[in-house]
Simulated scan of single mutants.
Amino acid sequence: MVFYSYYIKNLRPKILFPDKNLIDVILGSMGVRTNFYEVLSSVDTVIKNNDFNMEVSFRKCSHVDSIPSYGVLFKLDGSTLYYSGDSNSISNFVLEGLEKGSIDFLYQDTCGIDYSENPHFYLGRLAKLIKPELRHKVYCMHIDPEFNRDEALELGFNVVEAVK
């Protein structure tokens, strides 16, 4: 996306990421020079536009030891959405937010296989953690070939659809 923006659209995209040095290293290892983009580096950011104000907050989460991962909390028009990113856990902050109504929607990295050191969150664990009456707020995403879409729907979760 950075290359496309820079070379095709003649734009220098702005990237929201809480650790500028880390994103510079990651993109640099792919050949992306720092003058191709701008990093807005903050754990909390407010994006203002004529049409809306959106608050964006990054929350560290677990995935694999060698790759840092962040979830993102979006607040817009009185609604709050938490996007887990690649994660094999759900923090108490998110669980309590769903329970108390301070988080309206949870997009959770979900997979169909359960094994030790899984970098993604197993659907069976999700069903144990989220009460049935709150599952309509949860959207399963990341979905691997072993993920059973029908089972997730029967459990009361939503499943994101790939847009083609």
Rank of each mutant, 00 (worst) to 15 (best):
M141A: 15
N92A: 11
I103Y: 01
D44K: 14
R125W: 05
V94S: 02
L16G: 03
V94D: 02
G31K: 13
S57K: 09
L126S: 00
D77K: 14
A152C: 08
M141T: 14
V43G: 04
V43F: 09
L73D: 02
L106V: 02
V160L: 15
L76C: 10
R12D: 05
V94I: 11
S5V: 00
V32L: 12
L98I: 11
G112H: 07
S66L: 09
Y139V: 15
F74N: 00
T45W: 00
V160N: 11
N88W: 00
S29P: 07
V160A: 11
N118E: 02
N49I: 03
L155K: 13
D144C: 12
R125F: 03
K20R: 14
V56Q: 02
C111Q: 06
D24V: 03
I113H: 09
I143A: 08
V160H: 08
D65R: 06
G85E: 04
N35S: 12
M1K: 11
R59E: 10
K75R: 15
E161G: 08
N53H: 07
I90D: 01
K48H: 06
L98E: 07
R12P: 02
K75Q: 09
E161L: 12
L22I: 09
L76K: 12
I130S: 02
V64Y: 02
S79Y: 14
P68N: 05
V46S: 07
N92V: 00
R149M: 10
I103C: 03
L98A: 09
N50V: 04
D144A: 13
M1Q: 14
F17C: 04
V56G: 06
V94N: 03
F93K: 11
S66Y: 08
C140S: 06
E55S: 12
I143Y: 06
A162D: 15
S87R: 00
V56I: 11
L153T: 09
M30T: 11
L76V: 04
F93L: 12
S102R: 13
F36N: 10
T34I: 12
T34V: 12
I67T: 09
E154P: 00
D51L: 15
G156T: 01
N118C: 12
S89H: 05
Y115P: 05
F17D: 06
S87H: 01
F52L: 12
Y7N: 08
L16W: 00
V64K: 04
K20F: 00
C140R: 03
L16F: 05
F74H: 03
A127V: 04
E133W: 10
P145V: 12
Q108T: 06
P18A: 04
K60F: 09
L95Q: 14
N35T: 04
E96W: 10
D144R: 14
V39Q: 07
G28C: 03
K164C: 12
N53F: 07
V163E: 14
Y122W: 12
G112E: 03
L134T: 02
S69I: 01
L11T: 08
Y115N: 08
N92H: 07
V159Q: 03
I23S: 05
K20M: 08
Y139G: 10
N148S: 15
K9M: 11
Y83M: 05
D104N: 15
A152N: 08
V32S: 07
N118L: 05
E117S: 14
I26C: 03
N35W: 08
R12S: 12
G31Q: 11
I15V: 14
I15F: 01
F105W: 13
S42V: 01
